[in-house]
Amino acid sequence: MCAGGTARLVLSNGGDAPLELTVEPWAEIHSILPKQSCVVVTHSPAGGGSWPGTSRAHEPFEVDHRPDSVTVWANGNCFHLSDAEGNAIYALDGECPVQGRPAS
């Protein structure tokens, strides 16, 4: 597991069209299908629970929503996506302490 903290952000698409999800600062673009949810998970290496890159140390995410897209700034040292049941959708790279290698 991770020595720091873990944060999860659930995103749901209640619309009728795919919702574009961009995860920053990695510029990773994914799609949330209609009537589906995904979870953005990030990990902080800091034992005190602070999150690098955020304007407030206690906030692991910043979110910007537009009608057809959402941008999530995951302020940990990595991120991965899972579905609502916790099944891996995508991991950025082998540096993510929980997920390991990207899902195919």
Score class of each variant (00 low, 15 high):
residue 6 T to Q: 15
residue 7 A to K: 13
residue 7 A to I: 12
residue 8 R to K: 15
residue 8 R to C: 12
residue 8 R to T: 14
residue 9 L to N: 06
residue 10 V to W: 08
residue 11 L to T: 08
residue 11 L to K: 05
residue 11 L to W: 05
residue 11 L to N: 06
residue 12 S to D: 09
residue 13 N to L: 09
residue 14 G to C: 10
residue 15 G to Y: 13
residue 15 G to M: 12
residue 15 G to E: 12
residue 16 D to W: 11
residue 16 D to R: 14
residue 16 D to Y: 10
residue 16 D to L: 12
residue 17 A to G: 06
residue 18 P to R: 05
residue 18 P to D: 07
residue 18 P to A: 06
residue 21 L to E: 01
residue 21 L to V: 00
residue 23 V to T: 00
residue 23 V to E: 00
residue 24 E to C: 02
residue 25 P to A: 04
residue 25 P to D: 05
residue 26 W to G: 03
residue 26 W to S: 08
residue 27 A to C: 13
residue 27 A to I: 13
residue 28 E to Q: 15
residue 28 E to W: 13
residue 28 E to Y: 11
residue 28 E to R: 14
residue 30 H to A: 11
residue 30 H to Y: 09
residue 31 S to A: 10
residue 31 S to F: 11
residue 32 I to F: 04
residue 32 I to S: 02
residue 32 I to A: 00
residue 32 I to H: 03
residue 32 I to N: 01
residue 34 P to W: 01
residue 34 P to V: 01
residue 35 K to E: 13
residue 35 K to M: 11
residue 36 Q to F: 07
residue 36 Q to H: 14
residue 37 S to Y: 05
residue 37 S to I: 02
residue 38 C to S: 09
residue 39 V to C: 04
residue 40 V to E: 02
residue 41 V to L: 04
residue 41 V to S: 08
residue 42 T to K: 03
residue 44 S to M: 04
residue 45 P to I: 04
residue 45 P to G: 06
residue 47 G to P: 07
residue 49 G to Y: 06
residue 49 G to I: 04
residue 50 S to M: 10
residue 50 S to E: 11
residue 52 P to M: 07
residue 52 P to K: 07
residue 53 G to V: 01
residue 53 G to N: 03
residue 53 G to R: 03
residue 54 T to C: 03
residue 54 T to G: 06
residue 54 T to Q: 03
residue 55 S to Q: 10
residue 55 S to M: 07
residue 55 S to T: 09
residue 56 R to V: 09
residue 57 A to F: 06
residue 58 H to Q: 13
residue 58 H to D: 14
residue 58 H to A: 11
residue 59 E to T: 09
residue 59 E to A: 11
residue 60 P to F: 02
residue 60 P to G: 04
residue 60 P to H: 07
residue 60 P to N: 05
residue 61 F to D: 02
residue 61 F to G: 03
residue 62 E to I: 01
residue 62 E to R: 09
residue 62 E to L: 04
residue 62 E to H: 08
residue 64 D to M: 05
residue 64 D to W: 05
residue 65 H to F: 08
residue 65 H to V: 14
residue 65 H to I: 14
residue 66 R to I: 06
residue 67 P to N: 07
residue 68 D to N: 10
residue 68 D to G: 06
residue 68 D to M: 07
residue 70 V to H: 00
residue 70 V to Q: 01
residue 72 V to P: 00
residue 73 W to V: 00
residue 74 A to F: 02
residue 75 N to H: 15
residue 76 G to V: 01
residue 76 G to S: 06
residue 77 N to L: 12
residue 78 C to N: 12
residue 79 F to T: 08
residue 79 F to P: 07
residue 81 L to F: 09
residue 81 L to D: 07
residue 82 S to N: 10
residue 84 A to C: 08
residue 84 A to G: 11
residue 84 A to W: 08
residue 87 N to P: 08
residue 87 N to K: 15
residue 87 N to D: 15
residue 88 A to K: 14
residue 88 A to P: 12
residue 88 A to V: 13
residue 89 I to Y: 10
residue 89 I to P: 06
residue 89 I to H: 08
residue 89 I to M: 12
residue 89 I to K: 13
